[in-house]
Simulated assay, not measured.
Amino acid sequence: MKILIVEDEIGISNFLSQGLQEEGFTVDVANQGDLGLQKALTEKYDLILLDWMLPKLSGLEICLKIREQNKVVPILFLTAKDTVQETIEALQSGANDYIKKPFSFEELLERIKVHFRTATHSEVLSLGTIKIDLGKRKVFQNDSEVIFTQKEFDLLAYLVKNKGTICSRNKIIEDVWDIHFEYDSGVIDVFMNAIRKKLNLTPDVPLIKTIRGVGYIAEDNHE
């Protein structure tokens, strides 16, 4: 497994590089934003660790540009920024995860392992005219592919896997975001709005219903 670290603090990048190499990963390091973007777009990585505040180009800009190229590599932000709005901004840019500095290497390693637990089969889920290929991580509607960010895909797949069951906000945060402490679940609404917009899920064709004060439910029967 090959990991790219984009981090301008030499001490942190060296610490992470050494630790990950000891765990058996192949590691590349870029200490400037523009160099990190160049590596991300021209080389193949299994995961990217991305600082937010970088010289030349910010981590947020890098993440957006990577997703503009439809690259689906998992991206984990490593940053001292920690407000709810900043977290939402990072996730909306296409990041898969967000870990606040300072952090323990053990926690980071476990989060990395979570993102490497990809589907090894071609199970396909369905919801109305929507098809979700878990193995290829692709979504189709009426046989046309709809492009989703990593986290949008994860949220949609989770709701459809649990079709017919009300999924509470707390459970979604735990299972999709892998966050097991009190957290503002308003971020879920941001992603649900994006999913509904991309799939044209109007009130007349809900498929995924909001259960006020509780969470969401995916249902084929939308009568």
Rank of each mutant, 00 (worst) to 15 (best):
residue 1 M to N: 11
residue 2 K to M: 14
residue 2 K to Y: 05
residue 4 L to V: 01
residue 5 I to P: 01
residue 5 I to F: 01
residue 10 I to M: 07
residue 13 S to F: 00
residue 16 L to W: 03
residue 17 S to Y: 10
residue 17 S to I: 07
residue 20 L to V: 15
residue 23 E to A: 13
residue 23 E to H: 02
residue 26 T to A: 14
residue 27 V to T: 08
residue 30 A to H: 06
residue 31 N to G: 05
residue 37 L to M: 05
residue 39 K to F: 06
residue 40 A to K: 01
residue 42 T to E: 09
residue 43 E to S: 12
residue 44 K to A: 12
residue 45 Y to T: 15
residue 47 L to T: 01
residue 47 L to M: 09
residue 48 I to F: 06
residue 49 L to F: 00
residue 50 L to I: 13
residue 51 D to I: 02
residue 57 L to E: 04
residue 57 L to N: 12
residue 58 S to M: 03
residue 58 S to V: 04
residue 59 G to K: 11
residue 60 L to A: 03
residue 61 E to C: 13
residue 63 C to E: 08
residue 64 L to N: 12
residue 66 I to H: 14
residue 67 R to M: 07
residue 68 E to K: 15
residue 69 Q to M: 10
residue 69 Q to L: 13
residue 71 K to N: 13
residue 75 I to E: 08
residue 76 L to V: 14
residue 76 L to H: 09
residue 80 A to R: 07
residue 84 V to W: 15
residue 90 A to I: 09
residue 91 L to I: 10
residue 91 L to K: 12
residue 92 Q to F: 07
residue 92 Q to A: 09
residue 94 G to W: 01
residue 94 G to H: 00
residue 97 D to I: 05
residue 98 Y to Q: 14
residue 100 K to Q: 11
residue 104 S to C: 02
residue 105 F to S: 03
residue 106 E to D: 09
residue 108 L to I: 06
residue 109 L to N: 14
residue 110 E to W: 04
residue 112 I to G: 09
residue 114 V to A: 10
residue 117 R to K: 11
residue 118 T to A: 12
residue 119 A to P: 08
residue 119 A to I: 06
residue 120 T to N: 14
residue 121 H to L: 05
residue 124 V to C: 11
residue 124 V to P: 04
residue 128 G to L: 03
residue 129 T to V: 00
residue 130 I to M: 02
residue 130 I to V: 02
residue 133 D to T: 04
residue 135 G to W: 02
residue 137 R to H: 02
residue 139 V to F: 01
residue 139 V to R: 10
residue 140 F to A: 04
residue 142 N to F: 08
residue 145 E to I: 03
residue 147 I to W: 07
residue 149 T to D: 06
residue 150 Q to K: 07
residue 152 E to Q: 05
residue 155 L to E: 08
residue 155 L to F: 02
residue 159 L to P: 00
residue 162 N to L: 00
residue 163 K to V: 13
residue 163 K to G: 10
residue 165 T to W: 07
residue 171 K to S: 14
residue 174 E to F: 13
residue 175 D to W: 02
residue 178 D to G: 13
residue 178 D to S: 15
residue 179 I to T: 11
residue 179 I to Y: 08
residue 180 H to M: 02
residue 180 H to C: 03
residue 181 F to S: 15
residue 182 E to K: 10
residue 183 Y to W: 08
residue 184 D to V: 05
residue 186 G to I: 11
residue 186 G to W: 10
residue 188 I to E: 15
residue 189 D to C: 13
residue 190 V to S: 14
residue 191 F to C: 11
residue 195 I to E: 04
residue 196 R to C: 02
residue 202 T to I: 14
residue 204 D to T: 15
residue 206 P to H: 09
residue 206 P to R: 09
residue 207 L to T: 07
residue 207 L to I: 13
residue 208 I to E: 05
residue 209 K to W: 05
residue 211 I to S: 10
residue 212 R to Q: 06
residue 214 V to Y: 15
residue 216 Y to R: 04
residue 217 I to K: 07
residue 221 N to S: 09
